[in-house]
Every structure is written in C-alpha cells, then in structure tokens.
C-alpha cells in the first residue's frame, strides 16, 4: 500500500516539480527542515534564527514568517530562494504568529513580556502593543478579519481583541494553560485547547461564553499525560484534529456531535498540526522523537514518519 502511494506520488512529482513542500521549524537546532511531500523525505535543512517556533506562510505562499524566539525577531523568508530577506520588529521573545486576512497585519505573542504586538508588514512597524495575560501563546484571527484572540498560558484566559481599534474587548477564563485557538469556518465558534486542564473548550464568538468542554479518555494512558496543544479544523469534513502532547496521539473529533471519532498514535510529544491543500494529509510535529507523522485524513492512519531536527515545533505546507 505504502509503495503504491509512493509510486503514484513519484509519478506526479515528475510534473509537479518539488511542490507541495512542508516546512518544519526545529526549536533546538535553529533550523528549518524542508520536506518534499511527494517523496516524504527531508530534501533540505536551512539555518535560521535562534529557537525557531511559530511558522506561517503568506496568503500567496511566496513568503514565510518565522518566529526566531531567542533572536527576538520575526524573520521573513523568500520561499523561491529559501533565504531570509528581512525581519519584522516583533518585540521580545515572539513565540507564535498569526496573519490577518488582509495579508498586511501580523500578530505575535511576546511570551516574556505579557504583550500582544500588532505589526504592519509593508512599513515594518509596530502598530500597537496590547497588554494581555502572563505568557501569551495561542493566536487566532477570524476569517472575516474583525476579531482576533490570544490565549495566555499562566493567566488561563482567552483575550478577545477588536482588530479595528486594537482594543481588548473581553476576557474569558478557560482551563489551565491554554495553548492554541482556532475559529471555525463561519467564525461562530472558537476552539481553544488547555494543555494542563486536559480539555478543549468551544466558545460562542458572539457571547464570548463557553458552550462546550471536551475531555479525552485513552485506554492505557494516564489522564495527566493527555495534554491538548495544536488544533486544526477540516473544511471538507466535520472533523477537528487535536494534538495531545505526551499522550503521543492525535484526537479526531466530530465537529457536529463533539464526539471523539478516533485517537491516532503518532510520535512522542505531538505538538502542532497542518493540512496539505486538499486536506487529504495532515502533518504532526513530534517534539521528543524529533520527527513528523503524516496522517491520511480518510483512513486516519499514519502513512509516513519523517525524521527531522531536534524538537520540531511549527509546521506549514506550501502548495503554490
């Protein structure tokens, strides 16, 4: 089966050059691994700034924005040449980043200073810094661009920010150590993972009230080890995927019924997740085992495991 898939992809790769490619930041190697998504192998490893974590692509996939946390900057990489072409004034210790749908505004969480920094990309300037809770981390911008949220790990809160005037408009308490946040497709709901609380909370974006809390139960895994981190929501199917950290599994949740469909065993300390273009494959970064698992989202099986650098953290797939 695996060989057949490989042959099919090899066949396509003749026509499709090297795309799609996946990019993975290696937190403890200060490098970026580039995975050829036809060969499912690392084809290049590039030196980047110190302690790279958050990684996102521009809307046209021409550039990437990389949080080099210990270099205190967001690096901009030209993806046609794989060179760093500039950086953005991020403030100290940027950990995660999110891009506004307008493509010009980028948000970053400054973990050490309890700040959310809003940066205008064309002028490379800081537009606003917003006081948030201790150790801000998870960022999400609504698809309509009107609202964004940041979660703070030690304050255990979701801070809601109006993107027009950069005002903190509401704060909602959530279970311990919130890590990642995602709006659903019509922006009616916000999904938030709580690492130490061991739960995923779903908020109504109008009322900012919690609607639902999802807990996990895996046979043979002690509940303290179930630590939800990365969340992704599928467009084509009513599925949400949640990385469960040291439980070494990704939970598959039906977004209509909130029932858990499956737990997929991946590498150790699974962290962040990303889809390919048609959402047929999902990649997971596995920090402790230093590899990436590639999951088939139809069969919910792991099809490939790819060794990358030390402590892979952020991941994104470029297809255009």
């Amino acid at each position: 089966m695996r060989l057949n898939v490989l042959y099919i992809f090899c066949f396509f790769s003749v026509f499709a050059h090297a795309l799609p490619q996946a990019y993975v930041t290696n937190e403890k190697d200060n490098t970026l691994s580039i995975i050829d998504m036809n060969l499912f192998d690392v084809v290049d490893t590039i030196e980047i700034g110190e302690r790279p974590r958050g990684f996102i692509l521009s809307a046209d996939h021409a550039k990437a924005y990389i949080c080099a946390s210990d270099a205190d900057r967001i690096q901009i990489m030209d993806l046609s040449t794989h060179t760093i072409v500039g950086d953005l004034p991020s403030g100290a210790d940027p950990e995660t980043i999110a891009l506004h749908p307008n493509g010009n505004t980028i948000y970053t969480a400054n973990e050490d200073d309890a700040l959310l920094t809003v940066i205008d990309i064309p002028t490379s300037s800081v537009v606003a810094q917003i006081d948030v809770g201790v150790e801000p981390e998870g960022l999400a911008v609504s698809h309509d661009g009107n609202l964004m949220v940041v979660t703070s790990e030690t304050t255990n809160m979701v801070h809601w920010v109006d993107t027009q005037n950069h005002e903190n408009i509401a704060n909602s308490l959530v279970d311990a150590r919130p890590r990642d946040a995602h709006f659903n497709h019509d922006d009616s709901l916000l999904w938030v993972s709580s690492e130490i609380g061991g739960t995923v909370s779903i908020f109504d974006t109008k009322t900012k009230q919690k609607l639902k809390t999802i807990s996990f139960d895996i046979k043979g895994v002690y509940r303290d080890k179930i630590q939800p981190v990365g969340i992704v929501l599928m467009k084509s199917k009513p599925y949400a995927f949640v990385a469960l950290g040291p439980a070494n599994r990704v939970a598959v949740i039906n977004t209509d019924t909130y029932e858990i469909v499956d737990y997929i065993l991946v590498g150790r300390r699974v962290w962040q997740l990303a889809f390919n273009q048609d959402e047929s494959l999902m990649l997971t970064t596995n920090g402790v085992s230093g590899d990436v698992s590639v999951i088939n989202t139809h069969s919910l099986d792991v099809e490939h495991t790819i060794k990358v650098g030390r402590y892979p953290w952020g991941v994104a797939v470029k297809w255009q």
């Binding site: 205190d72 403030g91 100290a92 300037s125 800081v126 606003a128 810094q129 917003i130 006081d131 903190n168």
Partner: peptide
C-alpha cells in the same frame, strides 16, 4: 527596546485594557 517602541508610537499601555 520595548519602552523605546512604546514611547515612539505613543501607545499608552493602559489604553488597551480599558475593559
């Protein structure tokens, strides 16, 4: 660095936490 940016942009830290 942080103070410098704040002074430069004249963003009062408290303004964003009116709520």
């Amino acid at each position: 660095f942080v103070c410098f940016i704040l002074v430069l942009l004249q963003i009062p830290l408290s303004a964003s936490t009116l709520n």
